[in-house]
């Protein structure tokens, strides 16, 4: 059936060097990439969503024990880490703005700062984990949480089993978050190399925007983790 063959003009425009063959124009390619990233972030929300559900159910059942367990973590470290991540989000938008306005040193400097903030976050997280490890608050064979009073009820001790569920969720949630940070650091290393090589211009800097979306999203997850895990039923 030769008459059903599609006839038409062949679009032989001057191709942008970064335009992949199956896209018609750079705009379409950029929109597809950003749309794809947003959908991926949607899957990430549902991924963490299962953990948030588990957290909510057990927090409702074992509120006092969760309060006791939460109060054993240094809230100041969590707050400091929140601030660090917020600063890193600022440097991400500055890097993109630097690319948009052809300010090369601002872009590269901001990328480096972002990664430094990311490393600082992981460092503080490491200090926190080490403390929990020393206190035998890591779930497993050596876990112990005996004779810890429930906040507001000095005469009642927290049930170590229920506290263990809190710490299990704490380690899984913050651990997965930290894993996302490490992946983010990998992405930003690659972005830094691309930026250094001069691949990003005011016209083309899609990878920066996509990587930035991921980084901000990891920040948003932490914005929720901080009050949920560190600030249950706190008392001075």
């Amino acid at each position: 059936m030769p008459d059903s063959t599609v006839v038409g003009l062949h679009h032989e425009e001057e191709h942008h060097p970064e335009l992949l063959h199956h896209f018609a124009e750079p705009e379409q390619q950029r929109d597809a990439a950003s749309f794809g990233m947003w959908i991926f972030l949607g899957t990430e929300v549902m991924f963490f969503g299962g953990l948030f559900l588990a957290y909510l159910i057990y927090r409702r059942l074992y509120f006092g024990d969760f309060g006791a367990a939460s109060s054993s973590i240094k809230a100041g470290l969590g707050a400091a880490n929140t601030a660090v991540l917020i600063c890193s989000s600022l440097t991400v938008v500055l890097a993109i703005w630097g690319a948009q306005t052809a300010r090369r040193s601002l872009m590269i400097g901001s990328l480096i700062l972002t990664m430094l903030f990311g490393l600082t976050f992981l460092g503080i997280k490491g200090i926190e984990y080490k403390e929990k490890f020393d206190e035998h608050h890591v779930p497993g064979a050596s876990f112990s949480f005996d004779h810890v009073p429930i906040p507001g009820h000095p005469d009642q001790y927290a049930n170590p089993r229920h506290a263990e569920i809190f710490f299990a969720l704490y380690f899984i949630m913050t651990g997965l978050h930290a894993l996302h940070m490490i992946v983010g650091l990998g992405i930003f290393t690659w972005l830094l190399i691309m930026a250094w090589k001069g691949r990003f211009t005011p016209e083309y800097h899609t990878p920066l925007e996509i990587g930035g979306l991921y980084w901000h999203f990891v920040d948003i997850i932490w914005i929720y983790l901080f009050p949920l895990l560190y600030l249950i039923d706190r008392h001075r």
Binding site: W97, F226, P227, L231, R234, H235
Partner: peptide, 27 residues
């Protein structure tokens, strides 16, 4: 320039973190 927006958002986020932290210690 979006810089003004970026820095105001940054300040707002830091203030929000501080308020969250302080409010947690009030019963």
């Amino acid at each position: 320039s979006p810089l003004k927006t970026y820095f105001s958002v940054w300040i707002a986020l830091l203030v929000g973190t501080f308020v969250t932290y302080e409010a947690a210690f009030i019963d």
